[in-house]
Amino acid sequence: MIHFRNLTFQNIKQKLQVKKPWDEVIIFVLNILISIPAFIIAHQNLIELNWAFNLDRFLLFIFILIGIQLVLRLLRTIIIICIVFYILILLYGTLSGNYGFQSVYEDYDSMVYTMSDNPFPQDIIISKLLPFPNKSQIVNAIEYQNPKVRNFAVMAVNKNFKNIKGFTDYRNIIQCFGVFKEINSRWNYVSDPKDGDYIATASESLNYLSGDCDDHSILMAACVRAIGGTPRLIHTKGHIYPEILIGSMNDLETVNFLIKNKLFVKESYGKQLHYHIDERNQVWLNLDYTAKYPGGPFMSEEILGALTLN
């Protein structure tokens, strides 16, 4: 009986084995697919030693590459099971709204983008691999269909920049900038409790126009989306801030003119716009609570996550 079980196990094991040289090819591809995201996550969470030529990061990548290669070689006989397990994890992430196939595609697309020749360091998105903090709570808190939020946004539109003429194609952007002005000119920063994050809904934050960075981002995103704009939230080390989709670089030129000459003349005088360009070459303008005008300076350049609200 024991001999029969061993024989059955050996038969199954042989059927699951991949013949040479395809086992080496599969191990190499899996190693790359796993090592690069693992390296980026390690890079974001480990202290940099500031060695010359970023030697510490080079050694970290080599260590991860070799480690995963050794593990995959040990699992050579069940490599098909490893592939199936990898696919099941991504499938679960896709179905549950977490890290899935689309996220993998976007992350590798972002990595290719960051390795390309780009003359503007502020445009580079480091990675989107880390989980966006409190994602489900934040999405639920962005109550862009709440009448209270919609009414506030409409009030801001009618109060600010209502009489700007001659820019029909940018009317929605101008209206969103009116929302930005209303919120940022009245926002009062109030910290969360010491024992954890407090995620205020957009309608709740309207009561006193007060809260921390995630509360501000939620309110700004909700109001912008309530009047037809496309916002996204950016996660950096210890901070979250909102951005708005501007469009192409040509659109940015027009928006730059509007901000400098029509809308925020004093606030933006002698200053530049701060923005990001994503892997689809779309321009996103900073709307942080620390900014006095759309496109004001970033508090932090390094992006750890992006939550786009289509």
Rank of each mutant, 00 (worst) to 15 (best):
I173E: 14
R186D: 08
D215I: 02
R225I: 04
K162C: 07
I199L: 13
D214C: 13
I227G: 12
Y198S: 14
P231L: 11
I199E: 08
G229Q: 12
Y208A: 15
Y189W: 10
I174R: 10
I218H: 04
L219V: 02
K165S: 15
R186L: 10
V224N: 10
D197V: 03
D214I: 03
Y208I: 05
R186P: 02
C223G: 09
G228Q: 07
S185W: 05
A200S: 11
H216N: 08
V190T: 06
M220T: 02
P193Q: 12
T230G: 08
S203E: 15
S185R: 13
R225T: 08
C213R: 04
T201A: 15
F167C: 04
S217K: 02
G178M: 09
C176D: 12
K194R: 12
K165Y: 06
S210Y: 00
E204G: 12
V179T: 14
N172Q: 12
I164T: 08
I164C: 00
K165F: 05
R232V: 01
Y170Q: 11
R232M: 10
N163E: 06
R171C: 07
D214K: 12
L233G: 04
Y189I: 01
W187Q: 02
S205C: 10
G196N: 09
C213H: 07
D214H: 10
I174C: 15
L209K: 04
T168S: 15
S191M: 01
N188W: 03
G166N: 12
C176W: 10
D197H: 06
D214Y: 03
D197E: 15
S210D: 14
I183H: 08
K162H: 09
E182G: 05
Y208N: 15
Y189E: 06
S191H: 07
K181S: 06
V179P: 01
F177T: 04
K181N: 09
R186K: 13
N163F: 02
A221H: 00
R171P: 03
Y198R: 11
L206G: 07
L233D: 11
K165D: 15
S217W: 00
D215A: 14
N172M: 15
I174K: 06
G228R: 06
G229D: 13
S191V: 07
K162R: 07
F180L: 11
I164Y: 11
R186C: 05
H216I: 00
R171K: 13
V190K: 13
V190M: 08
Y189V: 10
F167V: 01
G166K: 07
L219K: 02
S210R: 13
V190S: 13
A221Q: 00
G228P: 00
R171D: 15
R171T: 10
Y170G: 09
A202G: 08
S210I: 04
K194T: 12
R186N: 14
S191Q: 09
I173T: 13
F167W: 07
R225K: 05
G196F: 04
D192M: 02
L206H: 01
C223T: 05
A200D: 13
N184I: 03
D214Q: 10
